[in-house]
Design a binder for these strands. Structure first.
Length: 822
RNA sequence: GCUCGGGUGGCGAAACCGGUAGACGCGAGGGACUUAAAAUCCCUUGGGCCAAAGCCCAUGCGGGUUCGAUCCCCGCCCCGAGCACCA
């Protein structure tokens, strides 16, 4: 390796000043519109999407920037590969978050949001993102939410939107509806007031109709496994059976109660039934004797908020006085009411098998109900009383179940359902825990739901030509105790003629969920600027589905599932020709600070500006990516940012000396070139895997070779490195590319190719182990045979001394290792 | 409770298919240059024993499989995220 120290007679190499370089190139990009994608005419399009931010008043924090930079590197890399890359970015600015903040600071969101957006834009531009700002959007812009309302109308037209009464969490102090995540321990997260339950009429989307498809398609998607797993769990497919239990005696004779169970094999052990307090059969089943107790129980559970009710630790319940007949045993079993049975899942009723279900066991113990054993573990006595529920279905054998005794659980499931099916008492059923999507929000800051209520015609959709239904600027946007949106206080707004008959009617005063805004925004980006359509068919065909989507795993379920659902609906309508919106999705990690998520309340938010001021955007971008694996995130520390800056300084200095006239006639060092080509290969393989930290490490390693001993590098050694660095540190790369006189932009220069012959070393270090212990390494030719390797190893005194006599077994891994066993 | 991640030097981390554990960076120590400092460059840096050659121990803990385990299997402990009475 060349170690000649050439004192460099550098005359006037200007020092690397990131502020100057970055300003110069940001202006240049803007002026030349290099980040504006030619949407209609682009060849080889690549849609690199990142989840759009909520423009908070605090501004962009390093966690946001980490994600955006990660996406930007991927996008820039694709551009260097020759794609026409579209990297849009907008703002998810509607929603309760913005509204609450506006209430807190006493400003109107219509004034606040534009300010926040301006600040965000400024911060984002400083980071040197390759964002096409000409295709930006905000969900709060009427040109955008006009089409959000249109999406609602399409679902309505497809029969996928409907209205029903549903329970919501209500904070009597804030006088507002709360989302489940805003209820902490049964109390409002903001004021600690106990939360109540209210029933309101709300709009729902039939996403549960799509459960099977949403689940099935996951297998084909190139998505982070963690995200797919989260979606699978959320959709929650359960295979089982629906079994009918005829009702006997008491207040009602004749009808039957259907239950869903995943354990039909335990039906002989069903010793009682439980129905949800909201079950429609409750009044019919309740006998006179028990009526007051039942009524008391019902009002008690109705008062409780949704979250607390689900987290009750002790089982509660009440007997209806009615009995049902177990279709397997023919015995009468009592029917109870308890809030541990949920109306939203299955049929709202269960057969209770206390012997083999922990919840049923607990309930049976509490109320002295019989516990029967119908499944036995190995070596257990079938007649012994159960001390706790035996739930292991893998290793269970059926007992006390007549003709099914001795069967394995899996077999009994099939056989028992078949037997009941013959009697017309059961059928196999698949259930999903995915519920329909409630999109109504009794709030101000969202797109009004485009519906008009007419006394004669009912809920009439606003004609598409009348969209958007503008959100009026009202001063009193604070929610109140009425349970309806603040818009319901503005008669001048909500009284409109019915579109059908023209009679005075009333607008829907609820707005839609923010997740509806974000469930289709990726369809809009290419068509931003087109007024007459939500998305142009030709542009959509050209750019979608999204090639690469990067975002946080906190949206693994809701946003990503809703987007898939809306896309499927559009596809079924024939508006688009694909049913999955995101071909590839990668979840980035979370940047935390001092072990906790960044949030203003914790006071650990790190704002990027100060770091960009001090180190420059290039160094900060590269540093964020060097911090740890992109898909894992990590704890933010600024400890080693100096190392990254030093790397860029050395790159700058290398380019300066390589450009120097005295360096022109010198030739590249073969060893350096070999390392260069290995680095090109490594970086080119790491970036698509989002293994940015190791790509940067590889470039640093090359830098160490390039500059070892203040060696003077030549142009051929440095120039390709500038290209490799470009996705990470685009400004400095542009500057050096220009210095090399290579043209207007490094991003037009393509990606350097590596020479496979230079990448392959002709020798390698053969690790020699004796009895599994590493005893040395030998530099040997690449294609060495086992015989040659053994001979070489035995010839080495320092190695063979550990071996007594001839080797017995020989383990040879070509290209890696030799293990000799004595 | 369930489901996913994760646990490796003083610190952030690497090891891509079961094959040299700790690349790269920070920090620390030493040296060169300098009147000095900064900057830059070079060397050392997991722990222990030893004068040295060298040896031993080490990837949360305990077992197992294997010639060989950070990696696979079984049983635990700890941290993080999500879900949470889903029958």
């Amino acid at each position: 390796m060349s170690n000649s120290v050439n004192p460099t007679p550098v005359e006037e190499t200007p020092a690397y000043n990131p502020a100057v370089v970055e300003q110069k190139w940001q202006e240049s990009w803007k002026e030349r519109q290099t980040n504006v994608t030619d949407i209609p005419n682009a060849r080889d399009p690549f849609y690199a999407l990142m989840m759009f931010p909520y423009p908070s008043a605090e501004g962009l924090h390093v966690g946001n920037l980490f994600a955006f930079v990660g996406n930007d590197i991927y996008g820039r890399f694709q551009r260097l590969q020759g794609h026409n890359v579209f990297e849009p970015l907008g703002y998810d600015a509607f929603g309760i978050h913005s509204e609450n903040y506006a209430l807190k600071v006493g400003k109107h969101p219509m004034e606040l949001i534009p300010q926040n957006i301006t600040n965000f834009r400024r911060q984002l531009e400083r980071a040197g993102l390759m964002v096409d700002w000409s295709h930006s959007l905000s969900t709060t812009d009427p040109d955008y939410y006009k089409w959000t309302q249109w999406v609602f109308l399409q679902l309505l037209k497809q029969g996928l939107a409907y209205k029903k009464h549903a329970a919501v969490n209500w904070c009597p102090s804030c006088k507002t509806v709360l989302a489940n995540e805003q209820v902490v321990g049964g109390a409002c997260e903001r004021c600690d007031t106990p939360v109540e339950q209210r029933f309101l009429s709300q709009w729902f989307f039939r996403i549960s109709d799509y459960a099977a498809r949403l689940l099935g398609n996951l297998d084909q998607l190139d998505w982070s496994e963690t995200t797919k797993t989260a979606q699978r769990n959320w959709i929650g497919r359960s295979e089982g059976a629906e079994i009918r239990f005829p009702v006997k005696g008491a207040a009602a004779e004749g009808p039957s109660i259907s239950v869903f169970t995943t354990r039909p094999d335990t039906v002989f052990g069903a010793t009682y039934m439980v129905i949800a307090p909201e079950h429609p059969m409750v009044p019919a089943l309740t006998s006179a004797l028990y009526k007051s107790a039942v009524d008391q129980y019902l009002s008690r559970s109705a008062r409780q908020d949704v979250v607390t009710r689900k987290s009750n630790t002790e089982k509660t319940g009440v007997f209806t006085g009615a009995y049902a007949v177990n279709p397997a045993t023919g015995k009468d079993i009592p029917i109870w009411i308890s809030d541990y049975v949920l109306m939203e899942y299955g049929t709202g009723a269960i057969m209770a098998v206390p012997g083999h279900d922990e919840r049923d066991f607990e309930f049976a113990r509490m109320f002295g109900l019989p516990i029967a054993r119908v499944v036995c573990g190995e070596g257990e006595d079938a007649s012994a009383p159960l001390e706790h529920a035996f739930t292991d279905s893998e290793r269970g054998i059926i007992v006390n179940s007549g003709p099914f005794d001795g069967m394995a659980v899996a077999t009994a499931k099939r056989e028992i359902v078949a037997m009941l099916e013959e009697k017309g008492a059961a059928k196999p059923v698949i259930n999903y825990r995915l519920h329909d999507w409630c999109i109504s929000r009794q709030r101000y800051w969202g797109p009004p739901i485009p519906i008009i209520y007419c006394d004669e015609h009912g809920a009439v959709p606003v004609p598409e030509k009348d969209l958007p239904v503008l959100l009026p600027h009202v001063d009193d946007f604070k929610p109140d105790d009425s349970g309806v949106s603040p818009l319901a206080r503005h008669e001048a707004w909500y009284v409109v003629p019915c579109p059908e008959c023209g009679k005075p009617s009333r607008r829907e005063t609820d707005v839609s969920d923010t997740f509806l805004d974000s469930a289709w925004y990726f369809l809009r980006y290419p068509s931003v600027g087109i007024d007459e359509l939500p998305f142009d068919a030709g542009l959509t065909k050209k750019w979608l589905p999204v090639d690469s989507y990067i975002g946080g795993n906190e949206h693994a379920v809701l946003h990503l599932l809703y987007s898939r659902f809306i896309t499927m609906v559009m596809s079924d309508m024939g508006i688009i020709d694909f049913e999955e919106p995101f071909t590839r999705f990668r979840a980035h990690g979370l940047i935390i600070r001092n072990g906790a998520k960044m949030s203003k309340s914790r006071g650990n938010v790190v704002i990027p500006d100060q770091y960009i001021d001090k180190w420059g955007a290039d160094a900060f971008r590269t540093y964020l990516m060097f911090l740890g694996p992109f898909e894992e995130g990590g704890d933010f520390r600024d400890a080693s940012i100096s190392g990254v800056k030093r790397f860029l300084d050395r790159l700058w200095a290398s380019a300066a000396v390589a450009c120097d006239s005295s360096a022109l006639d010198r030739r590249a060092d073969p060893d350096v070139m070999r390392k260069l080509h290995q680095t090109i290969k490594k970086v080119g393989e790491d970036i698509p895997r989002l293994s940015y930290n190791t790509a940067i490490a590889a470039m640093m390693e090359y830098m160490n070779v390039l500059r070892r001993g203040e060696r003077t590098p030549v142009r051929a050694e440095v120039e390709p490195l500038v290209q490799l660095v470009a996705p990470f540190a685009p400004h400095v790369a542009e500057e050096l590319w220009e210095k090399f006189g290579r043209g207007e932009s490094v991003f037009d220069g393509g990606w350097p190719a590596y020479d496979p012959a230079l990448v392959a070393e002709e020798t390698f270090d053969l690790v020699v182990q004796i009895n599994g212990k590493t005893r040395g390494k030998l530099v040997v030719p690449r294609g060495i045979s086992q015989e040659e390797a053994v001979a070489a190893a035995l010839a080495e005194q320092s190695v063979s001394k550990f071996l007594a006599g001839e080797p017995g077994k020989i383990v040879f891994v070509p290209g890696r290792l030799l293990n000799l066993l004595g």
